[in-house]
């Protein structure tokens, strides 16, 4: 201990304190402050960049998910539209078919009616004509052979019976 104290140099202590305090002052001003600020700034920058990268990634993912949803929606929409179109087509076709059938049936019925009517008319006319022919024939026969009155009655009766069906 005594040796330590005798070794202790006041001058060296004085200079050392002075040098160190001077160095401390100068370094604080010209080195540590700018260095620490620069390091801090760089670290903040890195942190912010990482954060924004993370954010961008997240947004990207969200966007992708959104896109996926949109795609899915569009697909559904398309399927729906297709189905609707098919339904409409089927409906239209079946409607058309029904309508056509109805029309056809109607036409057919009309035709039948017409045919029937025509036939009826033709039959009536034929009857008329047959009757008049028969009368004419009978008249000619009567005129030539018999008294017309006597056979007329008989002939009519026969004609009545001769129903053309």
């Amino acid at each position: 201990m005594e040796k330590l104290i005798s070794e202790f140099s006041l001058g060296l202590f004085f200079w050392q304190t002075l040098i160190f305090l001077g160095l401390l002052f100068l370094l604080r001003k010209f080195a540590w402050r700018p260095i620490m600020a620069a390091v801090q700034e760089r670290e903040d920058n890195i942190e912010n960049s990482l954060k924004s990268a993370e954010q961008a990634k997240k947004e990207m993912e969200e966007l992708q998910a959104k896109n996926q949803d949109l795609l899915k929606e569009a697909r559904e929409e398309r399927d729906k539209m297709l189905k609707e179109a098919k339904d409409a087509k089927d409906r239209i076709v079946s409607e058309a078919k029904t309508k056509a059938k109805e029309e056809a049936d109607k036409l057919l019925a009309q035709a039948r009616q017409d045919i029937h009517n025509e036939k009826q008319a033709a039959v009536g006319e034929m009857k008329q004509m047959v009757a008049s022919f028969s009368v004419e024939i009978a008249e000619k026969i009567m005129k030539e052979e018999l008294a017309v009155d006597k056979h007329q009655k008989l002939v009519n009766t026969y004609l009545e019976d001769l129903k053309l069906n």
Binding site: I19, F20, G22, L23, L26, L27, F30, A31, W32, R33, P34, I35, A38
Partner: peptide, 12 residues
């Protein structure tokens, strides 16, 4: 001290 000062102020 001078050396340290020159080094670190240069670094800054």
């Amino acid at each position: 001290a001078l050396m340290i000062f020159l080094f670190f102020s240069g670094m800054a």
